[in-house]
Amino acid sequence: MGRTRDEIAARAAAELEPGMVVNLGIGLPTLIPGHLPEAHGVWFHSENGLLGMGPFPEEGDEDPQIINAGKQTVTVVPGGSCFDSALSFTMIRGSHVDLAVLGAMQVSERGDLANWSVPGGKTMGIGGSMDLATGCRRLLVVTTHTTKTGEPKLVRACDYPLTARGVVHRIITDLAVVDVAESGFRLVECAPGVTEAEVRDATGAELLA
């Protein structure tokens, strides 16, 4: 069983607090705002130069010059600001962004993240991923626990090209919430209807209780 993509996003939404500055990666993380209350008080940062990113515009209000990092049309909330890319990455690299939520291909038990390139696959590029993973104060990964073919994504060591080393704090998957502790992966909670044994089976490294 385990969580659906939307349920993973809902669980991740519970990590966000009013006043936080949060950057959401493309893909699954973009579902998170849909699971926040309307007056959530979170400041969403978009690395193309926007702090205070709001939801998609109402039909007819879309503006091609107001976009997120995935080049989707978005809105600016009251109090939002626009700026150039150097200042945007000053926010990211300078640890002014409280939380980044990114997808992953692999996470190692030391907190290494691989999420930008599959060996032999089409490389989409690096974009903001390495700066976000390296610079944000806290890094949350949202992903399925295993690949489509059942290979664990939580592993002892990544064999995919790394995005950054030793950066992941917490992983939220369809099966569990797992922290990266000093000594390795630590199980925080199982998803509803999932047993600890099932999580261990799907994890490619030791899982501390």
Binding site: P55, F56, P57, E58, E59, G60, D61, E62, P64, I67, G70, K71, Q72, T73, V74
Partner: peptide, 9 residues
């Protein structure tokens, strides 16, 4: 528009 994303009015 690269990706036109909207919500209902």
């Amino acid at each position: 528009f690269e990706y036109r994303t909207v919500r209902p009015r």
